[in-house]
């Protein structure tokens, strides 16, 4: 199926969940966060779609006051088609349903995105930081992230801002 057909199927199955957004490319589909777990389960189990592989979960901070995004690259081993799901989340309260039990690999991917962006995946059974230490402060990949001064008495070095032209 092409991504257009997939979008159509989703729109039919979950009316109102697909957001039309011209900013996104052909391969991407933006969804509302509220029905995400049901949609994910549908995407995986529907024989016509059968997205059995979650290729990647990417967190994105769109900057300044923009929303945080959680992007899911899905791929179907059976039909060899793919789609990218984009879910925009409110910056002050980024919460989205966890798909950890739909695709097992979601466990670590969501932990990583939580670690880097502070996106809270509700229903995740073990949502801890994964790459940073457990007691690290802040969400490192957010654009407004300020490095903490010291960590357990160790001075944290700052990344120098330089202009490259």
């Amino acid at each position: 199926m092409t991504s257009k057909e997939i979008k159509k199927t989703l729109d039919r199955q979950f009316p109102g969940s697909v957001i039309e957004n011209v900013d996104f490319a052909e391969r991407q589909v933006e969804l509302k966060p509220d029905q995400w777990l049901e949609i994910a389960t549908f995407l995986k189990n529907d024989p016509g779609l059968s997205f059995d592989q979650l290729e990647c979960v990417t967190g994105i901070d769109t900057g300044e006051d923009g929303p945080l995004q959680s992007r899911y690259n899905l791929h179907s081993m059976e039909h060899r088609h793919k789609i990218e799901v984009v879910i925009s989340l409110d910056r002050s309260n980024p919460k989205v349903a966890s798909i950890e039990q739909v695709w097992r690999v979601g466990d670590w991917f969501e932990r990583e995105t939580y670690d880097m962006f502070g996106i809270i995946y509700e229903g995740h059974r073990d949502l801890r930081r994964i790459l940073c230490p457990e007691d690290w402060e802040g969400w490192p990949l957010r654009k407004d992230y300020e490095t903490q001064e010291t960590y357990h008495g160790i001075v944290v070095s700052k990344i120098k801002e330089e202009e490259w032209e």
Partner: peptide
């Protein structure tokens, strides 16, 4: 996998690396 987002500037807006060993270890 590489997820690259460009905002038109000479620096990438976001680079995400989907590493195969990460999923294998999980």
């Amino acid at each position: 996998g590489y997820y690259i987002i460009s905002d038109g500037s000479p620096k990438p807006f976001r680079v995400k690396m989907r590493s195969p060993a990460f999923t294998a270890l999980s």
